[in-house]
C-alpha cells in the first residue's frame, strides 16, 4: 500500500469511527482489507482505495466495518466474568432488591460472544434472579456484526474458544457444523447499532456497562469524552468494565478503579455529584417499569 493511500485510509477511519491507527499499522489494514476487496470483486486494495476515494458510500461503510470488527470469544479473559458473578451481581442483587431489575450494556457487543456469555452467567444464577427483569443491550458500530450476534449462530471453531463444554450442551442447539444459542438466551439480548462517537444517552441508565477492547482504538480526547458520557449513563452504584489493556487512570476522574478487581471501575461519587451526572432511569420509566 502506498503511504498516501495509508494516510488517506487512516484519516477516513478516524473520521468515521474514531479508530486511531498508529503510523505502523499497514499490515493490519492490508490483512483486513484484502479479503474485503476480493469479496467486492476487486483485484486488490488499490482498487478498493480508488472506490473509497471516489466516495462510494457502500465501500466506505464496508471498509469501516472490516477495520473495526474485532476478534472475540466466549468468556474472553475469564476474569471479568468472575467479577461479574462474584462481585458485581451480588451487589446489584442487594441494591436492586426492591426494584428487581438489572440493565447491562455491552458497548462493543461485536458478534455476540460477550452478551451471550453474560446471559449464560445470569441463567446460572436464575434462582437468585427469579422474578427479576433482566436486560442486556448489545450495541456495535457494524450492522453486519450485529446481524451475526442476533442470529447467535457460531462455527464449531468459535464455540470451542472459551466456552466450557457444559455450557455448550446446556445453552446451544446443534445444527450440522454450527451451533445456535437457544431462543431463551437470545431473547435476553437486545441489539442496537451504535457509534460510540455519537450521543448514546437515549439508551437510558445501566447498572453495569461492559466496554472492553474498543477504547484502545481511540485517541485520548475521544476516550475522555466517551468516559464522561458513560459516567452519565451508569447508575451511581453501578459498574464499568474495561478491557485488560485499558484504564481510566490518568484520563478522567469520573470513574475510579475497584481495588483488587482488575478492569473494574465505579463512578466517582464526589465527581458525579458535582457534575449532576446521575441520570434518572429514563428508559425504565418509559418502559412502564
Amino acid at each position: 500500500m502506498t503511504p498516501p493511500d495509508y494516510e488517506y485510509l487512516r484519516k477516513l477511519l478516524k473520521d468515521h469511527s474514531g479508530l486511531d491507527l498508529s503510523a505502523d499499522k499497514q499490515y493490519l489494514i492490508e490483512s483486513r482489507l484484502l479479503p474485503l476487496a476480493r469479496k467486492c470483486g476487486l483485484s486488490g486494495i488499490p482498487d478498493l482505495v480508488t472506490k473509497v476515494r471516489g466516495g462510494s458510500s457502500s465501500h466506505i461503510a464496508q471498509v469501516v466495518e472490516a477495520m473495526t470488527t474485532n476478534e472475540t470469544f466466549f468468556f474472553r479473559d475469564k476474569v471479568p466474568f468472575d467479577h461479574f458473578r462474584d462481585t458485581m451481581m451480588p451487589e446489584i442483587l442487594k441494591a436492586r432488591a426492591a426494584r428487581r431489575s438489572v440493565r447491562i450494556w455491552c458497548a462493543a457487543g461485536s458478534t455476540g460472544q460477550e452478551p451471550y456469555s453474560l446471559a449464560m452467567c445470569l441463567k446460572e444464577m436464575s434462582t437468585a434472579l427469579a422474578g427479576w427483569r433482566v436486560e442486556i443491550v448489545a450495541t456495535d458500530l457494524s450492522q453486519e456484526v450485529l446481524e451475526k450476534s442476533k442470529a447467535g449462530i457460531y462455527s464449531q471453531f468459535e464455540v470451542q474458544r472459551g466456552l466450557p463444554i457444559q455450557m455448550l450442551v446446556k445453552y446451544f442447539k446443534q445444527s450440522g457444523e454450527f451451533w445456535q444459542v437457544n431462543p431463551e438466551l437470545r431473547a435476553m439480548v437486545q441489539h442496537r447499532q451504535l457509534n460510540l462517537l455519537h450521543d448514546f444517552s437515549q439508551l437510558g441508565a445501566f447498572d453495569i456497562i461492559f466496554c472492553r477492547n474498543v477504547l484502545i482504538y481511540f485517541d485520548q480526547d475521544t476516550k475522555i469524552n466517551i468516559f464522561n458520557r458513560l459516567a452519565r449513563l451508569v447508575e451511581a452504584d453501578g459498574f464499568l468494565v474495561l478491557g485488560a489493556a485499558e484504564t481510566v487512570v490518568g484520563l478522567t476522574d469520573t470513574f475510579k478503579p475497584v481495588p483488587e478487581r482488575r478492569g473494574l471501575y465505579r463512578p466517582n461519587a464526589a465527581r458525579a455529584a458535582a457534575a449532576g451526572a446521575v441520570m434518572p432511569r429514563v428508559a425504565a420509566a418509559a418502559a412502564g417499569r
Binding site: D77, V79, I165, I216, G243, A244
Partner: peptide, 14 residues
C-alpha cells in the same frame, strides 16, 4: 485452562 490444567494466560489484547 477450563479444567484447571493450565494457568490463565495474561489477558489477550485486541
Amino acid at each position: 485452562q477450563e479444567v484447571g490444567l493450565l494457568a490463565l494466560d495474561v489477558p489477550t489484547e485486541a
